[in-house]
Nucleic acid binder design. Structure first.
Lengths: 245, 245
DNA sequence: CGACACCTTGACCAACGTCAAATCCGGTGG
DNA sequence: CCACCGGATTTGACGTTGGTCAAGGTGTCG
């Protein structure tokens, strides 16, 4: 992505035509799902919508953390960079996922849209005021952070101790299970990210990802469907590969 | 560590002789520091103290998560295992650190004492009740989880993209800075964990850790002090090594 | 003093990275 | 419709970092 200014269109507030209570991802997101009407109303007063084109950054590592986001549609990658350009993708975010939950003063990573993406934006200051008003909201955030922490620890195990094949198998299975939670269908698995992105997420190179895909395909565990989609043919075998079976 | 039953001595509640308000780590821990007297009193009603000998497990991966802990004295390693025994240490915990913040139904990792260790134990159910009563407490937990999340992302970058030398340099510097926050003195750095533990934390092997220590020693960046202690001779150089300088 | 765990060092090896080339694919313009 | 362009992906040949295996060395605790 060359240097290109982020052009985010914001609506000052959600239009009345699409209140939070009618949100398409209300059942998916931990934040907005299972809130009382009052809490939801509070959220609705501070939320705005942002739209991102492919490759646009939503937040930048090091920038003051002025807002939290909730992905509504599309998908996002978040990553950290070393001075020499080495990159580690820390997560792929899908509808319902939370972005910028770390309530620190600056963002710890950059987040960039993988597809045309729509997000709900919650200004941090107003969010904190809301937390004081609705304790339940804070608990939801805590649960969300908790889940992210568990995922991060799984990823540490993957990055520190798994082989290339185990990493890719774990990744595909996780994506598939995530998709199942989203839309009840987990086959084929949609991969909105490039091989390079997968590599930077799994701590490998594009070439190794490509070779490992070929290996999985040749052994009949997966099948190439459409471009950017793969079908899991032998789910049990893939699961076994996850931990070195 | 061979199979050995955990023998934890618990006091039903903190003795009156050592109330939370006089806690030695009150200024270090995020949870107990900066709470109101009422909140602290609430905590004190549900807390008990547990003592662990070297090698004893505080919690076990997969067990129902019945309590949270706060390290008071000593140190702890937390880790995840693969079926074939490969191990990833997800963190080293020191006084003031929180253990088991993931509010999920089972523990995501095992935690084992590196030294004789004393912890405060908060039963999860009673803790949740307290969260409802004192919203401020939940916010503290959220901040804590937030910080852990940031650290986890740094660790992903380390595990996914850094060389052995960069990993060890990052580790030593982080330990040193942690020690500085604890007791204002960061030289020499105390290493209560074995080479094997460091290896499993950094995604390397004992041999590579040992060789890399030798390399750093030979280049004059660090110096061997007492057994289990190293002195950072050239802090600037070590910091440069952290990101491939 | 001896057993044992931990650490260090050396020789060799393999998984994965690097470099390079071929192929595929979508988009563009004639 | 079709040739061409540029980026993404795949594949191959080869190199390197860090792993494996093995042999001492060192400190600790009965």
């Amino acid at each position: 992505m060359p240097l290109k200014l982020v052009e985010i269109r914001e609506t000052p507030a959600r239009t009345l035509g699409a209140p939070c209570s009618a949100c398409e991802i209300r059942d998916v997101g931990i934040i907005c799902g299972s809130l009382t009407a009052a809490e939801l109303g509070g959220l609705q007063r501070i939320v705005s919508t942002v739209q991102c084109a492919v490759g646009q950054a939503v937040i930048h590592e090091g920038d003051p953390a002025e807002a939290l986001f909730n992905v509504v549609a599309g998908s996002v990658k978040s990553y950290k960079l070393l001075p020499d350009g080495r990159r580690q993708i820390t997560g792929f975010l899908f509808p319902g996922d939370f972005l910028g939950i770390a309530l620190n003063d600056t963002y710890a990573y950059t987040a960039e849209a993988l597809q045309a993406t729509r997000l709900c934006r919650f200004p941090r200051r107003r969010m904190e005021a809301l937390l004081a008003e609705y304790p339940n909201l804070g608990q939801r955030l805590l649960v969300e952070a908790s889940n992210e922490l568990v995922a991060a620890q799984d990823q540490m195990l993957l990055l520190g101790r798994k082989t290339a094949k185990e990493r890719l198998a774990s990744f595909l299975l996780a994506l598939s299970e995530r998709a199942a939670r989203l839309d009840q269908s987990n086959s084929p698995v949609v991969l909105p990210m490039s091989r390079g992105d997968i590599a930077d997420y799994l701590g490998l190179t594009t070439e190794t990802i490509s070779r490992t895909f070929t290996q999985l395909r040749r052994s009949g565990v997966i099948r190439q469907a459409e471009r950017g989609e793969i079908e899991i043919v032998q789910r049990q075998a893939l699961r076994a590969l996850t931990e070195g079976g």
